[in-house]
Design a protein around this nucleic acid. Structure first.
Length: 286
DNA sequence: ATGGTAGCTCGGCTA
């Protein structure tokens, strides 16, 4: 008797389940044990880090390799900023872009394809958008001016954005909480950098221009408060739950229907010597 | 209205 081919074999190549975490780690060397704890428990295929705060030669490569993350793309700098992508899956290509004519390490991207057993290419961009200082006025505060220009350049950066059935993912610490319920008090934060109208408009303009879908808000209603960051400048971060949603995962239209899970590891804010940001993870079929 | 904490490196920047 002949074996009956399964539906899958006949009709399509099954999609691969792919998981991805973004985390502003605020020094990868200082918090490598927390990273290891997280990776052992959640085991995402890919981890995108921001604020690694070290040059590439000082990045704890061996530790990641021992944890099963053998593929690493780095864009570090001494003391400040710095982004990295560590992965269980091999990359096809890696790329670094600069914004605002600065050498700041605020972007790195990789693509996945045949080497990762994907039938169609997948492009992943990891960003660390400038925080923008304290004064929300681009004339008085050059850091805020830089942030606004950076957001404008993100919007204008055509290769970044998906078109048609492109499979793109954009993650990172975007340092903007765009919606009312992305902050603990919309009213009280309207003049606080990260939630001023000019920033939120520019971030959403980039998102709309690129036909991106905000995974958190695909999964969690707009009416619900969602945070990924709680300030260090509070005696107790849990009092009043004064958080903001600064860390984001955007996916292109071709990927959004494949989303199967989204989670914010809020517990991580309470770990010993934590980052002020917590890991944000998506699982989707690719 | 202000100051609060953290990290990198040991003064002052960045967040």
């Amino acid at each position: 008797m002949e074996a009956t081919p399964s539906f899958g074999q006949l009709c399509y190549i099954p999609a691969m389940r792919f998981s991805l975490t973004t985390w502003n780690i605020n020094s990868v060397r200082l918090r490598i044990d927390l990273v290891a704890k997280f990776l052992k428990s959640v085991r995402p295929d890919v981890l995108c880090l921001q604020e690694t705060k070290c040059i590439d030669d000082a990045f704890p490569l061996k530790r990641f390799k021992r944890l099963g993350y053998e593929h690493v793309a780095l864009n570090g700098q001494k003391g400040y900023h710095g982004v990295a992508i560590v992965s269980k899956l091999p990359f096809e290509n890696t790329d670094i872009r600069t914004f605002c004519d600065k050498i700041d390490s605020r972007h790195i991207s990789v693509s996945f394809g045949e080497k990762a057993q994907l039938t169609k290419p997948l492009e992943l961009h990891n960003f660390y958008v400038p925080a923008g200082g304290d004064i929300p006025d681009p004339v008085l505060n050059p850091k805020f001016d830089h942030k606004l220009k950076f957001l404008d350049e993100m919007k204008a950066c055509e290769p970044l954005h998906p078109r048609g059935d492109d499979r793109h993912i954009l993650v990172g610490d975007l340092n903007v909480a765009p919606h009312e319920n992305d902050v603990w008090s919309h009213k009280q934060l309207l003049k606080i950098v990260s939630h001023t109208p000019i920033e939120t408009e520019k971030l959403l303009a980039a998102q709309t221009h690129g036909e991106w879908f905000d995974v958190a808000r695909e999964r969690i209603p707009m009416s619900e408060k969602v945070y990924t960051w709680w300030s260090y400048r509070a005696a107790d971060w849990t009092v009043g739950n004064r958080g903001r949603r600064l860390d984001h995962i955007w996916v292109s239209r071709a990927l959004k229907d494949g989303i199967s899970d989204f989670r914010i590891t809020r517990d991580a804010r309470g770990w010993e010597r934590p980052s002020d940001h917590v890991p944000v993870t998506v699982t989707l079929d690719v």
